[in-house]
Computed example of a mutant assay.
Amino acid sequence: MSEGVRARSRSLLSDDLKAALKPAPPPSIPANMNTTEPKNPLKKPIHPAAIHFPIAFIGLAVGLDILHAISGNLPAAIANNVPVATDLTRASYFLLSLGLLTSIPAVITGVGEAKKAIDKQGLYEKDGKTIKQKFKGVIAHAIVNDIVILVMAYVWYARRSAATKTLAGKMGLGSALMGGLQLFGANIGGSLTYNYGFGMAIGSGGKKAQ
């Protein structure tokens, strides 16, 4: 091998080694990292977290009312392990109280975040007349849950003076219906989250641009 070829090989090898040993560029850092700029957690949606409490408390209250209503028709093996009627009705009453109390922040945050989303994206389609599909869902979600809260508030008011907090027959049926309606409203809320990104970020466009 000639001297020129050897020198060229050494030169190429040297360049390759230099390239391999060259340090990687530093990772890019977002502008708001490692700074004193405060992060505001209230910019994130609160309603999706707040709504779980009234759903849980009211749902449990309705479940105990249904259990109380059917306890007389249960097999003895099951009925003997069910709490006494007064315990069921009192527990249901206090769970309903918690459900109504926790509904207050759920409603307030829901209205506020819906307004922010509408202000950011607009309520109507490009024709200026048709309400966007996702906001139809928001309106339906709000109406359904407001009906549940109002009816259950009346149920709570009617039970408050009874020593055993027992539901009357028609009121028990209404409570059961509200439990089903609440699940329907929760299903609408879940669809808004998974299909349109509500709850991930205020005013997010989600998977489907509307």
Results as ranks from 00 to 15, higher is better:
34 N>H: 12
34 N>E: 12
34 N>C: 08
34 N>I: 02
35 T>G: 07
35 T>F: 02
35 T>C: 06
36 T>A: 15
37 E>A: 15
37 E>V: 15
37 E>L: 15
37 E>F: 14
37 E>K: 15
38 P>E: 11
38 P>R: 06
39 K>Q: 15
39 K>H: 13
39 K>Y: 15
39 K>S: 14
39 K>E: 15
40 N>K: 10
40 N>E: 11
41 P>S: 08
42 L>C: 04
43 K>H: 13
43 K>W: 03
43 K>T: 14
43 K>C: 09
44 K>C: 06
44 K>P: 00
44 K>G: 08
45 P>S: 10
45 P>R: 05
45 P>W: 04
45 P>I: 07
45 P>N: 07
47 H>I: 13
47 H>C: 09
47 H>R: 09
47 H>W: 12
47 H>F: 11
47 H>A: 08
49 A>I: 13
50 A>G: 04
50 A>S: 10
50 A>M: 15
50 A>K: 01
51 I>L: 14
51 I>H: 06
51 I>W: 00
52 H>S: 07
52 H>V: 08
53 F>R: 00
53 F>S: 10
54 P>N: 07
55 I>T: 12
55 I>D: 06
55 I>C: 05
56 A>Y: 02
56 A>L: 13
56 A>P: 04
57 F>T: 00
57 F>I: 03
58 I>K: 03
58 I>M: 13
60 L>P: 03
60 L>Q: 09
60 L>S: 13
60 L>M: 15
61 A>Y: 07
61 A>S: 15
61 A>N: 07
61 A>W: 08
62 V>W: 00
62 V>P: 01
62 V>I: 12
62 V>R: 01
63 G>D: 03
63 G>H: 03
63 G>A: 14
63 G>L: 13
64 L>Q: 05
65 D>C: 03
65 D>S: 12
65 D>T: 11
65 D>Y: 08
66 I>P: 02
66 I>V: 14
66 I>M: 10
66 I>H: 02
66 I>N: 05
67 L>K: 01
68 H>V: 03
68 H>C: 02
69 A>F: 08
69 A>E: 10
71 S>G: 02
71 S>D: 09
72 G>K: 12
72 G>Q: 11
72 G>N: 14
72 G>C: 06
72 G>A: 11
73 N>S: 14
73 N>P: 00
74 L>W: 05
74 L>T: 03
74 L>G: 10
74 L>A: 09
74 L>K: 09
75 P>Q: 07
76 A>R: 04
76 A>G: 03
77 A>D: 13
77 A>M: 06
77 A>V: 09
77 A>Y: 06
78 I>T: 13
79 A>W: 03
79 A>H: 03
79 A>T: 03
79 A>M: 03
79 A>K: 10
80 N>G: 04
80 N>T: 13
80 N>W: 00
81 N>P: 00
81 N>R: 12
81 N>L: 13
82 V>N: 01
82 V>I: 10
83 P>W: 04
83 P>H: 01
83 P>A: 02
84 V>N: 14
84 V>H: 12
85 A>T: 11
85 A>S: 14
85 A>Y: 07
85 A>E: 12
85 A>D: 13
88 L>D: 05
88 L>Y: 02
89 T>Y: 04
89 T>E: 12
90 R>E: 09
90 R>N: 12
91 A>D: 02
91 A>P: 00
91 A>M: 08
92 S>L: 00
92 S>I: 01
